[in-house]
Design a protein around this nucleic acid. Structure first.
Length: 476
RNA sequence: GGCCCCAUCGUCUAACGGUUAGGACACGGCUCUUUCAAGGCCGGAGCACGGGUUCGAUUCCCGUUGGGGCCGCCA
């Protein structure tokens, strides 16, 4: 049951690109705010730019939001399907004298703009259209003369009351009569936003800082529409490591790129939530329920924040550490390109490798190593750990292992240590080549656990293949 | 250029006039150890600068500097 005064918020992406982490964070704060206050979160697609909007990008944004867990209560609404609303509002403003038609051509405006720039002045629209009487304006429009519709900006300081930044004043000479409707009849961004926010009874506009300078236009528009002005909360930008607005240039800036890198949705959610908001109490890892319960706009900071992939990866590994083995297995399996061992072995392998991987992708690789023999051996490791006696020593190890009645980590370790002793070498001298033989690498899970998991047959086969490879490398 | 926003360790942040300025990532060391991780312990690292206000400023005000954003018939 929705109380009539419960907040209504929205996320309003335009389908001109994939879902950016900045946009995702904005959506996430809207969501958390709605959940925290018992409000409603709606999704609106701002697709009025016919040149740049692409339908498949809408689908991409929707699926990225779903993946991240950004679920909305109403929508998606498409501005492209709501033109009647904008047209009607424009006509009303025209009739009420709050907007007017302007008949300059784009070329005229362009040259005026250039002239102003050349003389170092800030360009502002002349306001010539203001003086045209409505009757004449109607007549010229009816006769088919090209025109735009502009808002008659009030000659007064516009005040934006921002929940995060406090009161921000915009002097009147900074704004001019901006265009509401293009000469081809297409309504423009600022206009659609305000008409829709009014129609959708939006109470709080939570969005990026880059819109702060646009907000006085919106305030004027809400006044003109005789609509209540929503409360605003402008979030600091998300920056790349060079402190510039995060973009493709910085590497992964889109949600789906992080998904493809193996970042878990709950980790990205958690990470993004903390980029600008801190719940207090020195906590970093929070459940979705905790975030929803504790989120508050007055704990959101005003300053921009740098997106740090290292910390994201760390957070990801925290989620991996806490995830039930079955689930981690399920999420890793798609990445086990070389095949995976049977479930019982895989589940134990998960525990062995859990602290050693940061993504399900890495886990998938680890799982594959149990299903497929290594097809090469790390060159540096060979150089370091393979000595003239190594092949012979490994053969002794194989001989000992072959007769082992039970195959466990402990019994395998006992055999290896016995062989090492007999050979008068340290256990390490045998352990390293053995790991190389079994996994192809010099690093990884504790050797004897690997031996046990691999099983007798596979372990001996891999050792055999390795011994052959060593012998082939160093002809007698 | 005009207008606007922002400013605590390299990064994310806590602090809401009085703290040895706290935590996390990253970094270094130690520990554990067959390797690599994970974990535990320890450590280096910050209030941009200058003026005020105040008994007292990281905290409030002003300026400087630095960074960012907006100035379209784009969103």
């Amino acid at each position: 049951m929705q109380e009539t005064n419960a907040p209504r918020v929205r996320f309003a992406p335009s389908p001109t690109g994939s879902l950016h982490v900045g946009g995702a964070r904005t959506a996430l704060y809207n969501l958390l705010f709605a959940r925290n206050t018992g409000g409603t979160f709606l999704l609106r697609i701002e697709d009025t730019d016919v040149e740049r909007s692409r339908e498949e990008l809408t689908g991409q944004i929707l699926s990225a939001m779903e993946w991240l867990g950004l679920d909305y209560d109403e929508g998606p609404f498409f501005q492209s399907k709501r033109y009647d609303l904008y047209t009607e509002a424009a006509n009303r403003l025209l009739r009420e004298g709050k907007a007017y038609r302007a008949f300059e051509t784009p070329e005229q405006l362009d040259s005026e703009r250039k002239k102003a720039e050349a003389s170092g002045r800030a360009y502002r629209y002349s306001g010539a259209g203001r003086a045209i009487p409505l009757a004449e304006s109607d007549r010229r429009a009816a006769a088919g003369e090209r025109h735009v519709v502009r808002l008659r900006m009030p000659d007064e300081t516009l005040v934006v009351d921002d929940l995060i930044r406090g009161r921000v004043d915009f002097p009147p000479d900074a704004l001019d009569d901006f265009v509401l409707v293009r000469s081809d009849g297409h309504p423009l961004y600022h206009f659609c936003v305000c008409v829709d926010d009014t129609d959708m009874r939006i109470t709080h506009v939570i969005r990026g800082d880059d819109h702060l300078a646009n907000t006085p236009k919106h305030v004027a528009l809400f006044h003109a529409l005789s609509a209540p002005v929503p409360k605003f909360a402008h979030l600091g930008m998300i920056l790349g490591t060079d402190r510039k607005k995060l973009s493709k240039r910085h590497g992964a800036a889109a949600v789906e790129e992080w998904r493809d890198e193996g970042i878990l949705p709950e980790a990205l959610f958690n990470f993004l939530a903390l980029l600008g908001w801190a719940p207090g109490g020195d906590r970093e890892i929070l459940t979705r329920a905790e975030m929803e319960r504790e989120f508050s706009l007055d704990k959101v900071g005003a300053s921009p924040s740098v997106f740090d992939p290292e910390k994201l990866l760390w957070m990801n590994s925290q989620y991996i550490a806490a995830m039930p083995a079955e689930e981690l297995l399920r999420r890793s399996l798609p990445h086990a390109a070389g095949g995976a061992p049977d479930p019982a072995v895989a589940l134990r392998a998960i525990e062995l490798h859990r602290p050693r991987v940061r993504t399900p992708i890495e886990m998938g690789r680890a799982l594959s190593s149990y299903a497929r023999d290594p097809d090469d051996y790390e060159a540096e490791g060979m150089k370091k750990h393979v000595k003239p006696d190594t092949a012979r020593q490994l053969e002794a190890l194989v001989a000992g292992l072959e007769v082992l009645p039970d195959w466990t980590a402990a019994s395998a370790e006992a055999v290896l240590r016995r062989v090492a002793e007999a050979e008068q070498i340290s256990a390490g001298k045998l352990i390293h080549p053995t790991r190389l033989a079994l996994t192809g690498t010099t690093v990884g899970a504790p050797l004897f656990d690997v031996v046990e998991l691999l099983g007798k047959q596979t372990s001996l086969r891999r050792l055999g293949r390795f011994i052959e490879a060593v012998k082939a490398r160093t002809p007698a």
